[in-house]
Amino acid sequence: MKAETIKAEVAHLNKSFGSNKVLLDMNFKIREGENLVVLGKSGSGKSVLIKCLIGLIEPDEGEIFLLGENVQDLEREALNILRKKVGFLFQSAALYDSKTVKENLEFHLRGSKTKSKEEIDQLVLEALQNVGLEEAIDKMPSELSGGMKKRVGLARALMLKPELILYDEPTTGLDPITSKEISRLILDVQKKYNTASIIITHDIECARITANRMIILKDGKAFIEGTYKELSESGDEWVSSFFK
């Protein structure tokens, strides 16, 4: 495997909140075009892990490399530049309440002096077409269903054509049909743009659809790693409980 294909790397990552050790010696790599699913029970440190990756939470120890750059070494300006190359889909979609869908998408292109108004409009339309929501362009987030919000959140994450996308519980709070639609959308995005994705979830169906590789977290540690098939056939009782 070529070194340049590594899109994210986590080495010996530790994070505690007081006496509560949330992440213990986490290690993993993700390659170009790969979907890595991080599975775990609620409170196992999945969201902390993804927030450490993007620099929203500072780890106690360890190193995080995103697109070849050490996140902890970066100054704020450099970190902001790096963040523009990474898409992030929040658990709650985190759409801006006071802005329309179009404004939500345009907002992440602010300061882009290289793009004209027409180019931005085209990018917005393309991003919404990718998630099948062109008709919602002028709607406010309050007028959208949970599934539509997630799709708009995904469209927003795709606006800057990121090399890496981080998904924080993309199917939480959705019905099984919409969850499947979102999972398939994640897969479509991977195929269309050849992006690397880290998908944090406790939804085994989402993992089945999207994962090229999986890590299951237990007590802040990467307990087991492998493909969906390998893990589902694992003899470990605790691991098998996820697949029942």
């Binding site: 929203l56 963040r83 985190a94």
Partner: peptide, 18 residues
Amino acid sequence: ASMKVTEQIDAMEVAGIN
């Protein structure tokens, strides 16, 4: 506070907006 709770402030942060 509502923006903070619904992660809108974090969303700006991860989009490289101050």
